[in-house]
């Protein structure tokens, strides 16, 4: 039964995304208008949910496999221990840092709401803005990163400016007034946030996050990839032997491509080398690669069809 339900859901899902891609936004059948894909964004969110489930599955998988290695003290248990500890440590640091940032941002909600109100409010309701600013003052919630005095001063100045423009400066165009107020709020927020970010960067969680990401993760990732340069060079030295005509052709093409793209080729050998390289890329390499791409696209299509129609034996049997 579960197999059957899974197959049906897979088929309906595939059919929906296929139709959504090929059908126009609006079309009519039997004199009734159909908006296919009206709820596409909401449906697409289901994929985000599936990704979240996949994260949970990954965590359970890591804990089960490496946890059992640690508990039974199998060979390589020290590596598993390092992995689990690093996982929990970085999870803790990143979460704490994220909570820190979020709590900081949420303290700016009042001012953000005012700014959103200003940009969306109809021109006639600008008088209400003053009331909103009064509520902000009464709420008495000072955002993080700014002193209470300067915040209150800023809000009262904003009110004064608004009152002045609405009562005295009657000629001002409402959209210009909106822009003035919006700019003032965003300028105040930008300056305060910049200062506060500097302060936040010195907290323990932020510094630890920086060490994990900029000090460990990124250099290690780059080092892993850069090792390729060494291994490829050695592999070329060991195995690139001109033993046949094909190998000679390949060597010649490689030589021309390399010399055509490095500065020394056009500087010391011939200025037309880059042109020659381009000719090889456009007229020899591209058609061959395009043929391969077509082949793999057709193969991909047949694979997708098999998955969509649940014809792959391995999936459910």
């Amino acid at each position: 039964m579960i197999n059957f339900i899974t197959k049906v859901i897979t088929f309906i899902g595939g059919l929906y995304f296929f139709l959504e891609f090929i059908l126009p936004k609006k079309f009519s059948i039997f004199q009734s208008e159909i908006f296919f894909g009206k709820y596409h964004d909401q449906i697409s969110l289901s994929l985000v949910l599936i990704s979240c489930v996949a994260v949970g599955l990954g965590v359970i998988n890591i804990l089960t496999i490496h946890g059992s290695v640690i508990l039974s003290k199998k060979s390589g248990f020290s590596s598993s221990l390092v992995l689990i500890l690093s996982f929990f440590f970085s999870l803790f640091i990143q979460s704490a840092s994220w909570i820190n940032k979020e709590s900081h941002l949420s303290s700016w909600k009042d001012l953000d709401a005012i700014s959103t109100y200003v940009s969306k409010a109809p021109d006639t309701s600008l008088e209400k803005l003053d009331n909103n600013l009064k509520i902000v003052l009464e709420n008495n919630r000072t955002p993080e990163g700014v002193s209470k005095e300067s915040y209150l001063l800023f809000i009262s100045n904003l009110r004064k400016e608004l009152e002045f423009n609405l009562n005295t400066n009657k000629d001002i165009f409402p959209t210009s007034l909106k822009e003035i107020i919006s700019n003032k709020i965003s300028e105040f927020k930008n300056i305060s946030l910049r200062e506060h970010e500097k302060m936040l960067a010195n907290t323990f969680y932020e510094r630890s996050e920086k060490v994990i990401l900029n000090g460990l993760f990124f250099p290690l990732g780059a080092s892993m990839f850069s090792l390729l340069a060494f291994y490829i060079s050695y592999a070329a030295y060991r195995s690139f032997r001109i033993r046949s005509l094909e190998a000679a052709c390949m060597m010649l093409a490689a030589l021309l491509i390399i010399l055509g793209q490095i500065p020394q080729g056009s500087m010391y050998i011939s200025e037309s080398l880059p042109e020659f390289r381009l000719w090889i890329m456009e007229n020899l390499s591209t058609p061959a690669l395009r043929a391969i791409a077509f082949g793999s696209a057709v193969a991909g299509l047949s694979l997708s069809l098999r998955m969509w129609l649940s014809m792959d034996k391995g999936s459910f049997n």
Partner: peptide, 18 residues
């Protein structure tokens, strides 16, 4: 410039290997 010298070096070591 760094990678161009490395590529020249690869050509050189391929020739040596052969």
């Amino acid at each position: 410039t760094g990678t161009s010298f490395a590529q020249l070096m690869i050509i050189f070591i391929i020739i040596i290997g052969n």
